[in-house]
Amino acid sequence: MSAEIQDALRSEARKLLEEGKVDKILGYCMSGDRVVPCMVYAADEVDKLIYNNRCKINLARYLRECDGRVGVVAKGCDSRAIVELLKAKQLDRSDLFIWGVSCPGMVDSEGRQYRSCSVCTHRNPVVYDGFLGKLVEEKPRLKDDELGLGSRDERMSYWSKQFSRCISCMACRNVCPMCYCKECVLEKKDPEWVARGGDISDIFVYHAIKAMHMAGRCVECGECERACPVDIPLMHLYSRVCRDVEQLFGVEAGMDENDKPPLSVFDLEADAILEENEKNKKS
């Protein structure tokens, strides 16, 4: 299946480059035995593009830094990140040509499936200009209690243990496709909301702020968890706040470009947003 997608991708990419419809193509290639993101500029380079079950890297993160017309390969999570970035006016849809691909669930270099992939409910792309391969069956979403949530005390002790490993490297923020702010509250120095060289309470504050800022925006690609050197299951937190936003405003992040981003729209009547989004869904 991945091989079919790869073949189709190469021929489509060649066509688009030859027709001059895009300037370049953002996809995956091999470097040694590692899968790395790559940019293909010419039709005769398309054979280096690959697609397999190790293409975990979320390409939307790099898309943010591209200029010109770009063709991009998008799995479920990449496409949701693109949608979310379009909603936030960080990307221009007319600059993009998206090849949607379904995702088999990605594994790391040692063949273990990523946790974020094992709980993924959107393996099929949600937005695309061309679709390669076949749709896969989506898995149902885990119930809240399966996210490892317990009583308040249990949660506190769970996260205390997780955060005690945090080395404040900020990789979780830096790899997040949704963290595009030019100036980040987590690193602001004047005033300094999160103390550098602080203690565990500052680390809690860091993660709490990050989680709040993911509310209604996290597309659950799991890049934060993958980047975290000490394996803190950060997506748990972000999924949790996203569920709340879904309940309150009826929007799941990264599903529809026309959804109003609930926390960016000021409306005294929160119900009005819910209604509008539901109306939108019906039409």
Binding site: V36, P37, R61, Y62, I167, S168, C169, M170, A171, N174, V175, A195, R196, G197, A227, C228, P229
Partner: peptide, 24 residues
């Protein structure tokens, strides 16, 4: 050009020594 400047390599590296100084 693919580096995300995520800082993680510098924090886990055994020979990265750079530090910041802050007053509190």
């Amino acid at each position: 050009s693919w580096c995300l400047n995520c800082y993680s390599c510098t924090f886990i590296c055994p020979t990265c020594y750079c530090f910041d100084v802050v007053d509190r």
